[in-house]
């Protein structure tokens, strides 16, 4: 039972971050490999405004989210968009986002130093008993937030005009642009939301592990794995992927040792890629030739 509960909670952390990948992939067919650094960026921005006593914690979290979102939108405009102009086989954005990751990592390290810094903003101390397992309140908050964010994104994509535009651009950007919608703008907004979520994850995660330049890196592999397992084209995917990845890796860690946890999760990714390359909830795209 412990493995199940703690796995679901851990999966929530990965699922929240995996939404960053899913969002950008659905709309722009790109992935930002600097997501880990946006996690750190969000955490450090919140740390920078932590001394603003006039602003409640929720406001500080929003500042972190907005700054990460703004930088994310700019990253799309200047480091992704120019490198995907040659059609769907143009994947130069892959290199430019990796380069962005290195630049951001070095910038943050030079400004803030390599050591973790305590972050008290939006911090819930202590743990609670969930079905007999001791769960950190902070981790539980992140897991609950993963569900809330996912539901909000699904509702927004299906029930709002903005969501309709987003889905239209994801399916046929050229036709959508003929109807007066700017795929470029939609891409920027999507990147802003996705990187805002990454920044939010960073803020909440930093309250547990401290804010450090490399804090996002260990989450990156698991989050991509979760997004792939759930399906990069499904907003529900990260929740399912996170639950499966988290529970499986915790179970393997409990049974065979910590070293097997991540390995088991990655074996799950391989199995899913063989069985359903589009992910468990992803939709297969048929192309007429």
């Amino acid at each position: 039972m412990d493995a199940l509960v703690l796995g679901l909670v851990l999966g929530g952390l990965y699922a929240l971050l995996a939404q960053s990948f899913v969002l950008t992939f659905i709309t722009t067919k790109t992935l930002n490999f600097a997501v880990g650094e946006f996690v750190a960026l969000g955490a450090f921005v919140v740390l920078a405004v932590a001394s603003w006593s006039w602003l409640p914690d929720i406001g500080k979290v929003v500042v972190g989210l907005l700054v990460a979102g703004l930088i994310g939108a700019l990253a799309y405009r200047f480091l992704v968009l120019p490198f995907m102009t040659e059609g769907e086989h143009d994947v130069r954005w892959l290199l430019s986002t990796v380069a962005l990751s290195f630049v951001m990592l070095n910038l943050i390290t030079n400004v803030e130093g390599p050591s973790p810094q305590r972050s008290e903003t939006a911090r819930l101390g202590g743990s609670v008993d969930v079905l007999g397992a001791g769960v950190s309140k902070q981790q539980l908050l992140i897991a609950v937030l993963a569900v809330v964010v996912t539901v909000l994104l699904v509702v927004a994509s299906k029930k709002t005009p903005a969501g309709l535009v987003m889905r239209a651009v994801s399916q046929d950007p050229e036709t959508t642009s003929l109807m007066g919608v700017s795929p470029r703008l939609v891409g920027m907004v999507t990147y802003a939301v996705a990187m805002g979520i990454a920044g939010l994850t960073g803020t909440l995660y930093a309250a547990t592990v401290g804010a450090s330049p490399v804090m996002g890196a260990p989450l990156l592999v698991a989050s991509i794995a979760v997004a792939v397992v759930g399906g990069l084209s499904s907003l529900w995917g990260p929740l399912l992927g996170g639950a499966l990845y988290g529970v499986l890796s915790e179970f393997a860690s409990y049974e065979f040792g910590a070293i097997w946890g991540e390995t088991a999760g990655l074996l799950l990714v391989i199995a899913v890629l063989v069985w359903r390359p589009q992910g468990l909830l992803g939709r297969r795209t048929e192309v007429k030739l």
Binding site: D2, A3, L6, L10, L13, Q139, Y205, V209, V214, M215, A217, P218, L219, A222, E250, S253, Y254, G257, A258, I259, G261, E262
Partner: peptide
């Protein structure tokens, strides 16, 4: 004997074992 990866997000399984 249990190993922890640098930056691991939790060590719950290690402690449980």
């Amino acid at each position: 004997e249990e190993t922890i990866q640098p930056g691991a997000s939790d060590a719950n399984a290690i402690i449980k074992r």
